[in-house]
Write a protein that binds this DNA or RNA. Structure first.
Length: 598
DNA sequence: GAGTTTGAAACT
DNA sequence: CAGTTTCAAACTC
């Protein structure tokens, strides 16, 4: 009685989940999404950030804003939302590597997605979470699996399997790694590995790997073990010598050395000889007591995961971005005992509000594109004016690093409008398309990518703007009126092009900013590193945590001085990338000029 | 490439 | 919920 795969019996009633599961996990959706190369996110995402990074989530059938917050979230996230994303892309919320859903790619530090991972399932029919493809919400494609049902041909069975899986575990397709509740932060110990501050939702249960092998999901995800873990002899904590040794080797891209180090670490060859108070005792690592004193006791590991909340703002969502992005060494005042914490070069560039603004602008642009395409009428003109005004204000507020609450509300409303209209059109569309939305040319008004952008935006927005007002409905109506029937496809294609291009540009700018920062920091980082580096034998087990505070302060000051005000950096990004002026052609030209220089 | 180890998922 | 089995990836040789 293995494999609750389908074939037998009607789909189980998993109300919430099944509705999500019924969403297009179809071939079309997949192809659609595959056209959209989000692989860039692989490096950016991560894991993490389940909620924060750009989750390519399909829209729930019900407007999430009409549901209780938790419910809405559940509905949206519960689905294998990345059915279309190639392996190399991020699984929702996870630093998806080309490797697997739960196995973020360690070979992706160059952020270059490697080849798509192919499963080798033999007995699960690729309809269980054992199968990485299935777990990632994608179809098997070019895999080496046997008796695979995870394909278009067996979509029904697959769907049922999804239902069954969700029934067992409603969070089955949710990201395993979530950003730390204390905020995502990039950290890095003195050995130089990039470390995500994600947190495994369930935690690992490793017993023999020391959490220093890829058997460990935390290690896989390049995150530290957390209080959620129930592992034994964990060595995957900040300050762990074994771990440091491991990454020290990795730093040189010497895999052999890395594994050697891991083995040595696990077997105790390196050991934590000097650990006066091993963060992980022989047995099950401590739970709360472990982290309680962390702030005071620098010798205690895993600090990185429990940063003070005030650190949250430093790195917004895309915790995913960290793994592949070279970082800067900075003193982290907020880090507390962890003196030298790695911070992504983007850490201060991107602020939560920027993401918000980005999403807002994307949505605005998208909406505007649709309206422009469908031909302006009087109402559109008014709406257009409104959007222009708001966009300007967004950018202005970005410049000031402040988003007046009033404006924020306005924006949220506008975004909500557009999201709603998107949803609405999406719902209207299927009437003339296959039920699963498979027919792109006819029924699918908006690609999953565009939807995802908007939905994610919506997700974020509605968390704070729970009350869809009449304005939303109004805008919804406007959208529907302005993009009826035939014109919709073209309009949405236009939208998609614009939005995705904008977003790509935005990411490019972010990367550019990161590179700039990298250049600026590289020499400094080196000197700081050297200054801080001590013989390994000293400061056993807590080289990083025992660095004198004054060094932190000093480095912090220096770095801060070297770094352009992040507000400015981000303003550059937003203002050059997101200004929708070129999207709203004065002369009515339909093709906006998208490329702009920084 | 075969065999072993490992830990998550599935099952009882 | 705990214990056991199944499974596929990671790892070793």
């Amino acid at each position: 009685m293995e494999e609750g795969d389908g074939g037998d019996g009607p789909p189980k009633n998993v109300s919430l989940d099944s509705s999500a599961a019924a969403l297009p996990l179809d071939g079309t959706g997949k192809k659609l999404a595959r056209q959209l190369d989000f692989t860039g996110f692989a490096g950016v995402s991560g894991t993490v950030a389940s909620s924060q990074h750009l989750q390519l989530q399909l829209q729930p059938r019900a407007h999430p804003q009409l549901l209780p917050q938790g419910l809405a979230q559940q509905t949206m996230a519960v689905m294998p939302v990345l059915p279309q994303v190639p392996h190399s892309a991020v699984r929702v919320g996870k630093p998806e590597s080309p490797k697997s859903r739960s196995r973020p790619n360690f070979e992706m530090k160059d952020s270059t997605p490697k080849k798509q991972k192919q499963c080798n399932c033999k007995h699960s029919r690729c309809l269980k979470l054992y199968c990485e493809c299935f777990a990632s919400g994608i179809y098997c494609e070019g895999c080496n699996c046997v008796n695979c049902f995870n394909n278009v041909e067996n979509d029904e069975a697959r769907r049922e399997a999804v239902d069954a899986t969700l029934e067992r575990n409603p969070n089955a397709f949710r990201p395993k790694i979530a950003s730390s509740p204390h905020g995502t932060r990039n950290s890095r110990d003195e050995t130089g590995e990039v470390l995500l501050l994600g947190k495994h939702n369930k935690g690992c249960h490793c017993k023999r790997s020391g959490c220093l092998k890829k058997y460990c999901e935390c290690f896989q995800a390049n995150i530290l073990c957390s209080e959620n873990c129930k592992c034994l002899d964990c060595k995957n904590f900040e300050g762990s010598e074994e771990r440091q040794a491991l990454f020290h080797g990795d730093q040189n891209n010497n895999i052999a050395y890395t594994q050697q180090a891991a083995n040595a670490a696990i077997t105790g060859a390196i050991g934590s000889s000097g650990y006066s108070s091993p963060p992980v005792s022989k047995k099950r690592k401590g739970q709360e007591h472990f982290f309680g004193p962390t702030v005071k006791d620098p010798s205690v590991g895993r600090l990185g995961q429990f940063q003070p909340p005030n650190n949250v703002s430093q790195v917004p969502a895309p915790s995913s971005s960290s793994p592949s992005v070279p970082g800067a060494w900075v003193g982290s005042a907020a880090v507390g005992p962890s003196n030298f914490a790695y911070r992504s070069l983007l850490a201060d560039i991107i602020q939560p509000q920027h993401l918000k603004e980005l999403c807002s602008v994307l949505v605005l642009v998208s909406g505007q594109a649709a309206k422009t395409h469908s031909g302006p009428d009087q109402k559109n003109l008014m709406d257009k004016k409104r959007i222009e005004d708001q966009t300007e204000t967004v950018l202005a507020s970005s410049t000031q690093q402040q988003l007046p609450s009033q404006m924020e509300t306005d924006i949220e409303k506008t975004v909500a409008d557009d999201c709603l209209s998107a949803n609405q059109t999406d719902k209207v569309g299927p009437d003339d398309s296959s039920s699963d939305g498979a027919d792109v040319s006819r029924g699918r008004p908006m690609s999953p990518g565009t939807l995802a952008l908007m939905c994610d935006e919506q997700d974020a927005m509605f968390m704070t703007a729970p009350s869809p007002s009449g304005l939303m409905a109004q805008a919804c109506t406007i959208s529907l009126q302005s993009a009826p029937g035939q014109g919709m496809t073209a309009a949405h294609a236009e939208q998609e092009t614009i939005v995705l291009t904008k977003f790509r540009d935005f990411l490019n700018r972010v990367i550019t900013m990161g590179e700039i920062n990298e250049t600026k920091h590289s020499s400094l980082a080196r000197s700081v590193l050297e200054t801080q580096k001590d013989p390994v034998s000293n400061n056993v087990g807590s080289t990083s945590t025992k660095t004198p505070q004054h060094q932190v302060a000093a480095s912090n000051g220096v770095v801060k001085a070297a770094v352009p005000p992040m507000a400015t950096s981000m303003n550059i990004i937003t203002s050059t990338t997101l200004i929708p002026n070129n999207i709203i052609p004065e002369n009515g030209e339909s093709k906006p000029k998208i490329e702009k220089e920084i």
